[in-house]
Amino acid sequence: MNGENKCINQTNPYLPEAARIVRTYPLTEDVKYFQVRLVDMEKAISFKYSPGQFAMISVLGAGEAPFSISSTPSRPSLLEFCIRKAGTVTNAIFKLKENDHIGIRGPYGNGFPIESMHGKDIIIVMGGLGAAPLRSVLLYCLDNRDLFGRVALLHGAKRPAEMIFREEFFALKERKDLECYLTVDADDTGKWKENIGVVTTLFPQLKDINPSKTFAIVCGPPVMYKFVLKELIKLNIPKNQILMTLERRMKCGVGKCGHCAIDYIYTCIDGPVFTYWDVIHMKELI
């Protein structure tokens, strides 16, 4: 499951490229949306990635950190990120405005095994900021709708205000070729018309699953996995067709600095996408 070098800077994979923030707005209280474009037009076009890959973003003076790409390669030349304020680098990114510059390098990581997913049914289960990496694969499936069977989205947030890409997902509910189910743990607005409850309460909505031809993709807060995986196993989806994307601290993104190691797996090049079967064997995660 090793990645290949598709990095924009072939001679020095550590070398960031200047990128301009095209648009930015808050998605929730502590999550912001950033749309960026590489300043060098040629590089902007040649930045080829697949859903599930990530990029390293740097801010002068603050440092560098990994972020999953939320946009889809089917809409090229602009990159989108959802960033939560968590540490030094994200704090610095939050202070930036439209037309400010950041450094970007990548894309890194294996991404989702898109080709083996062709012709299969896709169930995407996301919770909270898990929507950041999974939005990429969702939009990719929708943009290449003929390549996939059924596509279902189960998305959960704590409260309506904390659901990132809320409007976008509501708009997707209109689509006939997508089963889109949204839920919140609790509604503090009194205006929420969708399901209320944790994301697993959406599972009864999934009817007539054909497990052997289904890929399930999961990303969310740690507590979510245990319960969602139980549901997926109940549906008899094979363990190697349940995909998850893991996050770790990274300094290099290219399998050298060692910080993202889980046992001897390097999340940055062997992942960040792993099957449930892979994950069962990671001793440090148990």
């Binding site: 002068l60 440092g63 290099c252 050298k256 600095c257 060692g258 910080h259």
Partner: peptide, 16 residues
């Protein structure tokens, strides 16, 4: 082979 990366800003110009 593990390493860490440090951003060391310079005082006299906007650079690191």
């Amino acid at each position: 082979n593990c390493y860490n990366v440090l951003d060391k800003p310079l005082l006299n110009k906007y650079a690191s």
